[in-house]
Amino acid sequence: MTDKTTSIPDALPTSKRLPPSRGSRKTRTAAWLFVAPAFIAYAAFVLAPLVMSFYYSFLRWDGIGEASFHGLTNYITVLTDRDLLQIIGNAFQLVLYFTLIPVVLGLAVASAIRSHMAGRFGTITRTVLFLPQVIPLVAAGIAWSWMFASTGLVNQTLKAIGLSSWARGWLGDFVWALPAVGIIGAWVLLGLCTMLLVTGITKIDPSLYEAARLDGARPWHEFRYITLPGLRQEIGVCITVTVIAALASFDIVYISTQGGPGITTTVPGLEIYRLAFAHRQVGLASALAIVLMVLVLISIAPVQWFTRDKK
């Protein structure tokens, strides 16, 4: 694991001149004592399970009886089985909704407003837009299941504007269930991304825009050459957060569709759960888990790399 893939930006430039007085043996002992409790907790409930996950992924095991060594078969299954590939594909399709909608809408709002949201309006906006971040994802899932239900608000609205033919049970529809789940995720993440981008844009020096206008820039140019580069870091943050949310979207899917109809909305997280605890294929579940972890890492790495080189 290299620095680049793992580290979310280091936030602070670590001072060139290291704090001194650290070399001594006593300091080292103290350091270990301070770090030990956290490290033990981390090792016991993250590192150890991770190692076990890796180990299980080479086994054929039902979780109860004898385990047998299975070589790379589980990984081959994950990477060739049509259903599993579709499940992984679902996750990436969800990324489109989870990431694109919040970032695009957030950018639109941010570049239109381009100033701090102060006063009452700002407070109310922040409060409302952050609500989805505060409630459990499960609650969001239930709320939207109801929105998408056949008598739900979505259909009600469609009928009201004369599009009755469009009305359907969205979450039970083979074509529309996945986009509907995507909308739920977008709804959850929209407020956070918007607020991050709006805050980010207030940090861009306004004189840049004035200078650009004097140079004859049109609004599009301003957006392209000032807003977008200025928001690079914030966009990076939004993408990172939303991509992780999409790839690990267990809660919403579990509540709203249970992965159905068929496997059209099943995502790796849900499939791991099913394989391990319903189908008792612990080895395959673990291989999928490892693949999921790697997928998250390789999806995040380029974003981190792209937003980092600013320094």
Partner: peptide, 22 residues
């Protein structure tokens, strides 16, 4: 520190199976 940071992007789903047995 990097060992800690490595866990930042880890989805809980990736360790839930062994956690159950643990």
């Amino acid at each position: 520190y990097l060992v800690f940071v490595f866990g930042l992007t880890l989805p809980f789903e990736a360790v839930i199976t062994p956690l159950y047995y643990e």
